[in-house]
Amino acid sequence: TEYKLVVVGAGGVGKSALTIQLIQNHFVDEYDPTIEDSYRKQVVIDGETCLLDILDTAGQEEYSAMRDQYMRTGEGFLCVFAINNTKSFEDIHQYREQIKRVKDSDDVPMVLVGNKCDLAARTVESRQAQDLARSYGIPYIETSAKTRQGVEDAFYTLVREIRQH
C-alpha cells in the first residue's frame, strides 16, 4: 500500500529536517529553504509493509500558489509548527483551512506536530497545542528532528489516521 503524505507549515519550522531524519536517519543542521522535494521510503507499520511517498513543501509565502496542487494529491498532512515560534503555531489554522477548502472536506487525515521540542526556549505550551488538536479532532505529537524523538511516531500516526479514514 502506498501513502501520499504531505508536510506543511511555516518556513523554518523543520519540515525538511523531520523528513530527512525519518528517511535518512540524520539531522540536517543548516537551513536551506525548500521549494519542493519528495522522498520515498518502505516501512512496516503495524505489520503492514507500506511505501511512504512524502512531499516536503515550501513554507515560504512566495510558493503558496503551489499549495493547491499538492493538497489535492496528498492523502494525509503533517501540519508542523516549531514550539519556539508562536507565529508558526498561529499559521497552522490557515494551512488547515486551505487543506479543507482544496479537499472540499472537513475530515482530512492530519496530525499536528510541534517540532524542536529539544529546545528550552518554548513559547507554545503543550497544552495550547493539545487544545488546538482536540478542537480539530486530530492527534498532537511533539518531535525533535535533532534527537529523533517522536519522528517515526508522527509519520506513522498519520498513516494510521489515513487507514482509519
Rank of each mutant, 00 (worst) to 15 (best):
P33D: 03
I23M: 14
D56P: 01
D37E: 01
K4F: 04
L51P: 07
L51A: 10
V7T: 06
V28Y: 10
V151S: 11
Y63G: 11
Y95K: 06
Y95N: 05
T49E: 07
T1C: 10
I20A: 04
G74V: 14
E152L: 12
D106V: 12
G76Y: 07
K87D: 09
I138P: 02
V6A: 03
D107W: 10
E161I: 13
Q94C: 10
I99V: 07
C117N: 09
H93W: 12
G150R: 05
D91H: 11
A58E: 04
L78V: 12
Q69S: 12
Q24A: 14
V44G: 07
I141A: 06
E30F: 03
E75M: 13
T49R: 09
S16L: 00
T123P: 10
V102W: 12
Q69M: 10
N85E: 11
R72M: 08
R101C: 09
D106M: 10
V159G: 03
I83C: 15
F81P: 01
L18A: 11
I83W: 07
R134E: 12
A129G: 11
E142I: 04
G114F: 02
G150W: 09
N25W: 07
G12Y: 12
T19R: 01
A65N: 13
E75H: 11
C79S: 02
T34E: 00
S135P: 03
L52Q: 02
E97W: 04
V151G: 11
Y31T: 02
A121E: 10
E62S: 15
V7Y: 02
H165T: 11
E61W: 12
I162W: 04
E161Q: 13
Y39L: 01
V111E: 00
I162V: 06
E125D: 10
G47Y: 04
V28S: 07
R67S: 15
V151Q: 08
N85C: 11
V7L: 12
L132W: 12
S144A: 13
R148M: 15
F155T: 03
L78R: 02
S126Q: 08
Q69E: 13
P33W: 02
Y31P: 03
G74L: 05
P33S: 02
C117T: 08
F77M: 04
Q60H: 15
D37Y: 00
A120Q: 12
E90M: 11
A10P: 08
Q128P: 05
E30G: 03
V159K: 06
I35P: 00
V108Y: 08
Y63A: 13
K103I: 09
E75A: 11
V13M: 14
N115W: 00
N25F: 04
R127F: 12
D104H: 12
I99E: 01
L51W: 11
I23W: 02
L55W: 11
C50F: 09
R40H: 04
V108S: 04
H26D: 13
Y95T: 13
T49L: 10
E48F: 05
M110W: 06
S16V: 01
Q130D: 06
H93K: 14
E125Y: 08
P139H: 07
S88L: 04
